[in-house]
Design a protein around this nucleic acid. Sequence first.
DNA 1: CTGCATCCATAATGATACTG
DNA 2: CAGTATCATTATGGATGCAG
Lengths: 134, 134
Amino acid sequence: MPTTTAAQRREQARADYDAFLRECPTNQLLGRLSDKWVSLVVAALAPGPMRYSDLGRKIAGVSPKMLTQTLRTLERDGIISRTVTPSVPVRVDYALTPLGTSLAGLLTAVKAWAETHFDDVRAARETYDTENPA
Amino acid sequence: MPTTTAAQRREQARADYDAFLRECPTNQLLGRLSDKWVSLVVAALAPGPMRYSDLGRKIAGVSPKMLTQTLRTLERDGIISRTVTPSVPVRVDYALTPLGTSLAGLLTAVKAWAETHFDDVRAARETYDTENPA
DNA sequence: CTGCATCCATAATGATACTG
DNA sequence: CAGTATCATTATGGATGCAG
């Protein structure tokens, strides 16, 4: 007879993956996903694969450094794939993996929310600032 | 006769709200939402209102400073409401607004994704690190 | 209890120039 | 084209002490 009941093991498993807990790795993963560039890159790749320079153009304002850094971590996390075509000049394509595709829907939804509800937020800010003068 | 055509105005309106564009305010809003504490606070409030100290306990690892800062920003943006009960000691409850509720579903989905797919990500990292030694 | 103000160390980010 | 290297700047976040 086990020293832990099934209920206890289930409780433990949930605790292990509760992102509210600080030490939990999923907390860190959530931190990764909570990145503006991550959202934009994943959203940009959602319609289909893209080249490095195309991403740089589509995501206006991203520096080469941040773009590379974001792409590297996403690749390492198995969310995107990187394909090098050794032509001249060299060509590199990035695409969502199946794992990345499962995430893309969620992040594009957040991005779409920001675009849709921006007016509401702006109105709320004006009201707040009026009621709470500096 | 207007100096801009309807098509031009439509194009302009879309450009104004395309979060891929850097100067676009929605880009900044997306940056706001792409915050670990924002995700956790909104997710924590999704089931129902909570007091300040309860939030601090539920979201392990958050300092009073960051908690207050996050709550203020969310309040200003119309995503949560703040209710003060002038008892002794004072009691402050935070709750999602309708706007916040519409966002909560999306952010909790991302949080749930992190918890669900963490094992996949971890496996991907091990593979990547094996194939790309330092 | 619920915060706000301040200081401070560190990490993240951005601009820029350069290379295979 | 697809990055890398460097440097300056900013943002983040924790610790602490105090106040309504």
